[in-house]
Amino acid sequence: MPLPAFQLHRPRELAEAVALWAERGAAGKLLAGGTDLIPSLKQGLFAPDHLIDLGAIAGMTGISRAANGDWLIGAMTRIHELAEDPTLGREFPLLAAAAAQIASPVLRRMGTLGGNLCLDTRCLWYNQSYLWRQSCGFCLKKDGSVCHVAPGGRRCWAAFSADTAPALLALDAGVELAGPAGARWLPLADLYSGAGDHPLRLGRGEILSRVRLPAAAAGMRGSYQKFRIRNSIDYPLAALALALRREATGGVTARLALTALNPAPVLVAGLERCLAAALAADPPDLTAAVQLVNRAAKPLSTSTVPSDYRRDMVQLQARRALEACLA
C-alpha cells in the first residue's frame, strides 16, 4: 500500500528539528522508528504534509550517566538496546524486561524508546483502514463523532498500549522535552493527557529528547506482567510494571503502573500505604493492593479480547507481580 504524499525533513540537529516542528507541527508528524506511524499512514489515520525524521539527528541515541548519578537515555535509542544492554539490565531489570517483550525482535530493532513513549493510543474501531472506519461512520478519535466503545459519552477510550511507559513510571522516570524555548524536564506521568484522542501533552514545537532514570530507582526489584494472545508481535492487552524495594528501615518503596487498559499509562496511587498494611499481616494479605490496582484499570471493548477478561488479568498480574517482588 503506497503512502500518501508528504514532504520529508531530515534535520541533523535537534534545534533544527524543534524549529521545523514548531513551524510545521500543525500539519506534520514526527518520525522516529516509524513502526507505529508508517502503518497508521497507510491506514489514512494521518495525512501529514510534513514528516520530520529524527533519525539523522546526532546525539539522540545512547545510554549515559549524569553527574548526579541519574541515567539518561536518548529518545532515539532503539528498544532492542534497552532490552540487551547489560548494565541497564542489571540496574533496571524492569525496563529491560518490558523492552524485551515489545512486538517482535525486528520491530524492537526499528522502534525507539521515544516512539514507544509517544505511541498513539489503540482501538479496534480506530486502527483500521479508511473503508473499515467508513463502514461504522468513523469514530470520535478520527473523522467521526461517536465513540463505539462507549457510544453514550464524548470521551475517546482508545487504549495507550506501550510497554516501556509503565516500566518507566514505576521507575519514577522523567522526560526531557526540547522546545523552542529550550528544554524542560517533567515527570513521565505528566506527558499523558488521559484523553484517548489526544494522548500526549506536548507544547508547540516540543520533542521528547531524553529520558531520565533516577539513580534512586536503580537496583529496585521489578516485575513486568504482560498479557497478549501470542508470545510475539502482539501489542499488550493488559500489562503492568512493578518496581519495589524493601528498605533497610523495614518499609517498602513501590510503584506500579498499568498499560493497555486506559487511554494513558496509569501510575497507581496509594500503593505504598496499601502495601504497608498488607505486609503487617502474616502472611501478607495482598487483597487490598490488588483491588487498588483493579480500581485504577478501565478496560473497555477496545480489542477483540473481552474487557472483563482483561480486568481479570490485571488483578492476577498485580498479585503475581507483588508476590514475585516481595518473595
Binding site: M1, T35, I38, K42, L51, D53, A56, V106, L107, M110
Partner: peptide, 29 residues
C-alpha cells in the same frame, strides 16, 4: 502483510534486520 506483522519483507540494513514495508527509503540514505 504490509503492516509489519509478518516479517516477509525482512532485509538487512547495516547488518541489522529491518522490515522494508515499514521503512522509508530516504531514511536509509
Amino acid at each position: 502483510c504490509d503492516d509489519s506483522s509478518c516479517g516477509a519483507c525482512t532485509v538487512l540494513v547495516n547488518g541489522q534486520p529491518a522490515l522494508a514495508c515499514t521503512l522509508l527509503a530516504a531514511v536509509c540514505d
